[in-house]
Design a protein around this nucleic acid. Structure first.
Lengths: 366, 366
DNA sequence: TTGTATGCGTTATCAA
DNA sequence: TTGATAACGCATACAA
C-alpha cells in the first residue's frame, strides 16, 4: 500500500493545492492525499497526512530535538507513504549555502584533469558537498560562461584550471569574498589562491638526471608556448642547463609536433658533429608523439618525459619521467577552497607541489 | 566607479533590507545602494537602483519583450553597477527545473568513466544543463546516498553506472517519472533505460580473430565475476568458443589476478600436451596485469584484450584489442536521458552499442 | 511539545 | 509598457 500511495504523486500533479496556513486552515485534518502543484510531495503534504504542522515535519526531517516519539513516527510514516524527499533547492535558498562547489577544467576526459576532478570530488564528498564539473575545452569564452553559470547557482566555491588569458571578469566576485582557487596554472589580472606543480624543479631534476648519465648535449621539445606550463618548463630547461654549464643554444623547439617535424629535429640534432644524445619532452603529449616518431626510425637517444603515463614501464626502454600528481593538486586545491569557505580570509596563497623523478631506463646513456 | 560600487556588496552585507513593495513603498525612488541581507544584490536592489519595479528587472534579465529600450538601459546599468547575478536557485524553485543532471560512476579518475562523464557533460552543456558528478567507489551504500543527494537537489535526470546489486530504492522515483538512465551495466529490480556495450559480441570477435589465426586452444582471463561485465564476457567467451567447436573446459579463470597467479596459469596452460596458444583478457586491468606478468618470462603467446588503452600500439607486440567507446556510451545515455526529460514516456529502452576489434599484432600466431 | 508567520530571490498572473 | 502580488518549498524567529 505504501508503494501505491507513493507512486500516486505523479498522477495528482495538477491537483489544486490546499493551503495549510491562513484563515481557512481548518482543512488541516482532512487526511486527503492532495499534493502540491509541482507534482512532488512537500512538507506541507506530509504535515497534512500526519496531522501535524509544517514546522513539526521540518523538525523531524532535520532531526531537531523536541518532538514526541509518537508524533515523530506519524511524520516518518507519512514521509514514507508519500515518498517525500526534501527539496534542497528551497532549503538552500533559505539558508544561503548550496553545499556544492564548481570545477572548471579544460577537458574532463583527459586523465590529468579527471584525476584532479576525482580528488576534488572526494574532498567535497567528505565535506558533504556536491561537485559540479564542466569542461571549458580551452575556450576563454566558454570558461567565463561556465563560471557564470556556476556562480549563478551560488556554488560555495570555485576551482578553476584557467584557460582564459585574463580573469578580470572574476574580480568583482573575488573581492566580494567568493572563494576561488586556481589550479595547474595561475590566473592573470587577479590575485587569488593558486595551486601549482613545481614545473621548474621537475625539469631541473630531468636535466640533472641526464647530465649524471653523461649527457652533455640535451635537447628540449616543448609544447605550444601559449600554454603557461609549456613556457615554464622551457624556461626551467634553459636555466637548468645553463646552471650545469651545458649548451642550449638551438636545442629548444616549442610548438605542436607531428612525426615529420620530430624526425627532422632528430635528424638535425643527431647529424651534428657534437650530436644531441638526450631529449627532455615537455609534456605527456610531446613524449608520446616522440615515441611514435622514434618507433619508425632506428635512433637510440635518451629520453625523459614530463608527466607520467600508464605503461611507461612496459615500453622498451621503460620511460623515465617527471611525475606530477594531479590527485594531490586537486586535493590541495579543494582543501584550500574549503578553508576559504570555512572563513579563512588571510592573504591569497600560492601552493607549489613537488614533482617526482621516476627513474626507469630511458634516461641512461645510449 | 562601477567597480567601486560593485565591490560594495560584501561590506553592506548586514544592512537591513528595505522593502520595495507594500504600503510603505514610497522609498522606491531613494536610489540608495542598500543590499539584501544575503550580501548579494537581488532583483529588488537592481529595481531600486534603476527606479523600476522588480518585474521590470526580471523582464530585462530574462530578455522578455515589452520593455522600453530606455528603461532597459537603466536596468542594465544598475545590474552592472551592483554586480548583480541572478540567483538560479531561486529561479529553479519557482520554475521547477534545475537545468542540471546528475551522474554517478564508480570512480571519476578511471579513464573509462571520465571519458563517459566528459561526453555526458558535453551533451548537458549543449542542452544548457550543468552536470553534477559523483563517485560511488563501488559502494552500494554510497551510491544510494549520492543518488539521494542528487534527487534532493531535484536534478532533472540521473545517469548511473550501477554499483548496487539492488535498485528497488529507486522504484518510487522511477515510477513517478524521474528520468534515470543506467550505463555500462543494467540495474536489477527495476525497469529503466539502459545503455550497454555489446560485451558478448566483442568477446566473440576476439575469439574469432584468434581462431582465424589458427589458435585452437584459447584461454580466458576474466575479472571478478561479481562485476556484471566480467560475467557477461565470460559467458560470451564460452559460447563463442563452443560455437567454433573449440575446447574451453578448464580454460577460464576469473577473479583478481596478481603476477604470480597469472604466471601459474601460463605455466599450467603452456605445459599441456596441447598447449594454450592464445589468451583473451576480460578487461583493461587484466590485460595490463597480464602484460606485466609476461614481461618477466619469455613466453610467446597471442593476446587479445577487452578495452583499448593508450599506447597499446607502441608495445611490442602492439596489442590487439576489443574497444568499447566510453564516450559514445555516455553520449547515448545522455541523449536518452534528455529525450525523457523532454517528455518521452515510451517504454524503457535498452541500447546496446557495438564494440570494435582493433587488429594490431598480438593476436597473430606465435 | 507544537504551531504561526515571515522571508529567501525568483517567476507568473493579472491588473493598470 | 509597467507594476502589485502571490506563489515556489523550506527554515527560522517567535508564540502558545
Amino acid at each position: 500500500m505504501s508503494g501505491l500511495l507513493a507512486a500516486l504523486w505523479v498522477r495528482c500533479g495538477s491537483a489544486p493545492r490546499s493551503v495549510l496556513t491562513g484563515d481557512a486552515g481548518a482543512s488541516m485534518l482532512s487526511g486527503v492525499t492532495t499534493l502540491s502543484s509541482s507534482g512532488r510531495p512537500t512538507m506541507v503534504d506530509v504535515a497534512r497526512q500526519a496531522h501535524v504542522s509544517l514546522k513539526t515535519v521540518s523538525r523531524v526531517v532535520n532531526e531537531e530535538p523536541g518532538v514526541r516519539p509518537e508524533t515523530e513516527q506519524r511524520v516518518r510514516d507519512a514521509i514514507a507513504e508519500l515518498g517525500f524527499r526534501r527539496n534542497d533547492g528551497a532549503r538552500q535558498l533559505r539558508r544561503g549555502r548550496t553545499a556544492s562547489i564548481g570545477l572548471i577544467v579544460e577537458d574532463l576526459a583527459n586523465p590529468f584533469y579527471s584525476a584532479l576532478a576525482a580528488s576534488c570530488e572526494r574532498v567535497a564528498r567528505l565535506r558533504r558537498h556536491l561537485l559540479i564539473t564542466a569542461s571549458a575545452e580551452g575556450s576563454a569564452e566558454r570558461e567565463e560562461s561556465l563560471a557564470g553559470a556556476l556562480l549563478a547557482r551560488r556554488v560555495d566555491g570555485l576551482i578553476v584550471v584557467p584557460a582564459a588569458a585574463e580573469h578580470s571578469w572574476l574580480r568583482t566576485e573575488l573581492s566580494a569574498g567568493m572563494p576561488v582557487v586556481f589550479v595547474d596554472r595561475p590566473a592573470t589580472g587577479v590575485e587569488a589562491d593558486t595551486v601549482l606543480a613545481d614545473n621548474e624543479g621537475g625539469i631541473r631534476s630531468a636535466v640533472e638526471h641526464l647530465a649524471a648519465h653523461g649527457h652533455r648535449r640535451i635537447g628540449f621539445l616543448g609544447d605550444d608556448p601559449a600554454f603557461w606550463t609549456a613556457e615554464q618548463r622551457r624556461a626551467g630547461f634553459v636555466s637548468a642547463v645553463e646552471a650545469l654549464g651545458l649548451p642550449c643554444a638551438d636545442l629548444v623547439v616549442m610548438g605542436p609536433h607531428d612525426v615529420d617535424e620530430l624526425l627532422a629535429c632528430m635528424q638535425a640534432w643527431g647529424s651534428d658533429e657534437d650530436p644531441v644524445t638526450a631529449l627532455v619532452a615537455g609534456n605527456n603529449r610531446v613524449t608520446i608523439a616522440l615515441l611514435r616518431a622514434l618507433r619508425s626510425v632506428d635512433c637510440a637517444i635518451a629520453i625523459v618525459g614530463f608527466d607520467d603515463f600508464e605503461l611507461a614501464d612496459l615500453l622498451d626502454p621503460a620511460i623515465t619521467v617527471v611525475a606530477q600528481d594531479p590527485a594531490k593538486l586537486g586535493e590541495a586545491a579543494a582543501n584550500l577552497l574549503f578553508a576559504r569557505i570555512d572563513g579563512d580570509t588571510s592573504a591569497p596563497q600560492q601552493v607549489v607541489l613537488p614533482t617526482q623523478l621516476i627513474v626507469r631506463e630511458s634516461g641512461r646513456a645510449v
